[in-house]
């Protein structure tokens, strides 16, 4: 099975987040806020918008280059999730056949335009979210959320989810391997065995939770998690925050591609 090696490849994503780069060093709160503003801005574009979205590639490209993240990794992750988005947008070209524009003599319907728009929005938002994790680390984001006032219960839930995801995946893999080793090349006995596996995994998880809680109590846990604060907001952070948000708003308000086109067009006419 490929759960461990392939499924979003969290282990690799995790290891990327321990690199040191100017983006990695920025306070997680700032990066989280910028990402949220970015996603909301991108999604807020009307459904037929294509050209206005293009300038937004600047943020993920910035994160990839300054954060020293291999672009191939991000692309592969996008491909992995893309079927879901294609499913969502697939019917637009079929139902929406009103011609919208003409490109080199080929008429393009509104459906195709909105489909492209959906794809673009998907690529922009998902890659930025992945890059947020790759440049901040999941725990960094949790720390940031906690300091921005998200209740500790939720933050601790997220932290534990992340910590034990690796353990859980490994455990599941071992069980799947044990099943496959005794099912002579077939995938066990189908759904029935699978249901049993999931059940056993649940019981084991509950038992593990009990042991973890016992370990916490043994070390004096009283209901408050002592989380470290690794970052602070300085001048660099404020500049990062304000300049990116400003740029997003400008790009939302004015269609930069259009202006660029007009500029180039005039150039060409001259």
């Amino acid at each position: 099975m490929e759960i461990g090696s392939n499924f979003l490849n969290i282990g690799y994503l995790d290891s990327l987040s321990y690199r040191a780069s100017p983006v990695h060093r920025i306070d997680p709160r700032i990066k989280t806020i910028v990402t949220i503003v970015y996603v909301v801005t991108v999604v807020s574009f009307p459904r037929y918008e294509v050209s206005g979205l293009l300038p937004f590639f600047i943020y993920p490209v910035f994160l990839i280059s300054v954060g020293n993240i291999p672009p191939g990794f991000v692309l592969r992750k996008l491909l992995l999730v893309s079927p879901f988005v294609v499913m969502v947008g697939m019917f637009n070209p079929i139902f929406d056949r009103t011609p919208m524009l003409e490109l080199y003599g080929v008429e393009i319907s509104g459906g195709w335009v909105s489909f492209t728009s959906i794809l673009l929005k998907f690529v922009l938002t998902i890659s930025t979210a992945l890059l947020l994790i790759a440049t901040t680390s999941f725990t960094g984001i949790c720390e940031g959320l906690g300091r921005m006032g998200v209740p500790q219960v939720f933050v601790v839930q997220l932290l534990f989810l992340y910590r034990y995801l690796f353990v859980l995946v490994e455990e599941a893999l071992r069980m799947v391997r044990a099943r496959d080793a005794r099912s002579s090349g077939k995938r066990g006995k189908g759904v029935r065995v699978f249901i049993h596996l999931v059940g056993v995994l649940l019981v084991r998880t509950i038992q593990r939770a009990e042991r973890i809680y016992a370990a916490m109590l043994s070390r004096g846990y009283t209901g408050r998690m002592p989380l470290r604060r690794t970052h602070r907001i300085g001048m660099k952070e404020l500049i990062f925050l304000s300049s990116w948000i400003l740029l997003f708003l400008v790009m939302r308000r004015y269609n930069l591609s259009l202006y660029l086109g007009i500029l180039l067009g005039q150039d060409g006419m001259r």
């Binding site: 949790c142 042991r211 408050r224």
Partner: peptide, 29 residues
């Protein structure tokens, strides 16, 4: 505080995001 217990499976005991924070868990409490 007086009796420190080291669990059998370290994965059950190391639940904090970093080694530093995990070792600091007891003293912080």
């Amino acid at each position: 505080r007086k009796v420190g217990v080291v669990m059998q499976n370290p994965d059950d005991q190391l639940f904090m995001p970093t080694v530093r924070e995990d070792v600091a868990f007891g003293p912080s409490n």
